[in-house]
Each structure stands twice: as structure tokens, then as C-alpha cells.
């Protein structure tokens, strides 16, 4: 919708052209804006089902709470979407709407993992970090943090609240932190599949994301600065950049969770050697 410059083509909210249920003629910007609203409604309904279902059948209390968090996030997301319409796309609100969307995506991806067969049945293989115990966990959390900052900077640029250069400069920081995290995961913990797989995916997505970011910069900032309407290369490269960004954030969250599960901090000075390696038993 944003890439097609179609925000606000339906000028009212929560109704669309004054109606709660009528589907307007899907031409021009309305095609993108109203389709976005219909998909959002679908996502909202599915999240209600998810929360009710989880609350009824799930025994893990923290997971039930997480399902409520997903529901709260999708409600807040809807309200933020409405505020963007009422206040004509203020950059801060639009950026919050963009960032919360990816937060919701991460929550649902994490829930899918927590309820998956592998997570439920797997006996985690625990590798104590013997060298610098807190570094890896810190690195994974730092990766999430720098990605989140990058998401906000990108959203602020996309919604005309900031110039492009903070997002581009911060991309260097993100690349460095994520590469460091991935290299550590692959060099030290490659034997743990649950860590190795998201680390490889994360590294691949970083490379893809840098290429897409460069393409989006060329099509939108360098070549498309004076474009009178959104052109297809602009739309494709920007949408792909946003989508891969969301996948990258979710993958990094998954990696952090798997690291937390499989690579706990060792307390070797307090534990006897036999207790440090449960797989040895």
C-alpha cells in the first residue's frame, strides 16, 4: 500500500467510504488500501481464534499469555492503522504501525515454533558456553535490538519522517552485528541443528537484504526521485526489502530463542564437570 502511494485513498476509518461492510470498487489506490484493510481484518479474526484456542487447550501458562500478547498487538496495530488515517499519515504513527506489524509477525512465528512438534518433543541438546559465557546470548539480543532500530529508521524514511542516510549508515552496524552472531553460531555451535539452521538462514537473509536495500535505494532514491508515480521496479524492490526485513527479524528472534534454549550460560565454577554436559550422561 505504502509502496504504491495509496495510503489515505480510503479517507475514513473504521468505515470505508462510510460503510462497515460494503466492498468499494477496487480501482486505483482503493485496490491497495481496502485490500490491506480486508487482510488486516482476516489477520485479526485469525488471531482471536488463535488466542481462544491457545487459552483453551494449551497447558503452558506463558504460551497462553503470549497468545494474549499477540491479540493485544493485533488490536493495537488496528488502532494505529486507524490513527494513520485520522491524522493523515504522521511519520511517527505510521512508523509505529510498521514496527508493530513486524513485532506481531515475530510473536506469531515464535508461537508456531513453540507449538511445533520439534519444540514440544525435542530433548534440547545443551552446550555450555565455556569461553565467554554471556557473549553469545548478548550477541543474539543485540542483533534483535539493532534490527529493531533499523526497522524504525527504515520506516521513518519510508514515511517521510527522516532522510535515507540514518537507515543506510545503520545498515553497516546491522551487517556487522548479525555477521558476528552468525559466525559465532556457525563456528562454535554448528553441531546444534536448532542453532545452525536459523544462523545460516539469518546470514543468507542479511546478504539478500543488503542487495534488496541497494536495489530499493537505486530505484527509489537515485533513479526514481522525480518519478511522477510509483513504478514497478520501485514497488517490487521496496516490498521485497520490507518482506525480507520482516523474515530477517523473525529469524533472529528464533535464533535468540534457540540459543537461550540450547546454549545456556555456564556456571562452571559452581557446577561439577559432570553436570555441565547433560548429553554426556
Amino acid at each position: 500500500m505504502t509502496s504504491n502511494d495509496a495510503g489515505l485513498s480510503v479517507p475514513d476509518w473504521p468505515t470505508s467510504f462510510g460503510s462497515w461492510y460494503k466492498i468499494p470498487k477496487l480501482v486505483g489506490g482503493v485496490k491497495f488500501e481496502h485490500t490491506h484493510r480486508m487482510i488486516a481484518q482476516g489477520a485479526g479474526l485469525l488471531t482471536i481464534v488463535l488466542a481462544v484456542w491457545t487459552w483453551r487447550v494449551e497447558k503452558r501458562r506463558w504460551l497462553r499469555i503470549l497468545s494474549l500478547a499477540a491479540l493485544g498487538t493485533v488490536i493495537a496495530q488496528g488502532i494505529l492503522g486507524g490513527l494513520t488515517v485520522w491524522f493523515y499519515l504522521p511519520p511517527k504513527v505510521s512508523s509505529a504501525h510498521a514496527a508493530l506489524a513486524q513485532t506481531f509477525f515475530c510473536i506469531t512465528v515464535a508461537m508456531a515454533m513453540f507449538t511445533g512438534k520439534r519444540w514440544v518433543e525435542e530433548q534440547p541438546r545443551v552446550e555450555f558456553d565455556q569461553r565467554r559465557p554471556t557473549l553469545f546470548t548478548t550477541l543474539t539480543l543485540l542483533s534483535i535490538f539493532v534490527l529493531y532500530v533499523q526497522l524504525i529508521l527504515g520506516a521513518m524514511f519510508r514515511h517521510h519522517g527522516l532522510s535515507w542516510y540514518p537507515h543506510v549508515v545503520h545498515a553497516v552496524v546491522v551487517s556487522f552485528v548479525l555477521a558476528w552472531t552468525a559466525v559465532r553460531a556457525l563456528s562454535v555451535y554448528s553441531q546444534i541443528e536448532a542453532v545452525r539452521r536459523p544462523a545460516i538462514l539469518m546470514l543468507s537473509l542479511v546478504i539478500a537484504q543488503l542487495c534488496l536495500g541497494f536495489t530499493a535505494f537505486l530505484t527509489r532514491v537515485a533513479w526514481g526521485r522525480d518519478a511522477v508515480q510509483p513504478e514497478l521496479p520501485m514497488v517490487i524492490s521496496t516490498v521485497a526489502h520490507v518482506a525480507v526485513g520482516a523474515l530477517l527479524l523473525a529469524t533472529t528472534v528464533i535464533l535468540a530463542i534457540q540459543v537461550w534454549r540450547h546454549v545456556p550460560v555456564a556456571f562452571e565454577e559452581r557446577l561439577p564437570q559432570a553436570h555441565q554436559d547433560p548429553t554426556a550422561a
Binding site: N4, A6, G7, S9, G28, G29, V30, V228
Partner: peptide, 8 residues
């Protein structure tokens, strides 16, 4: 016009 992004 947000319906037609070229209209300015």
C-alpha cells in the same frame, strides 16, 4: 489524489 498517485 491518493487514488491516483500521479495526480498532483
Amino acid at each position: 489524489c491518493n487514488q491516483h498517485p500521479w495526480m498532483k
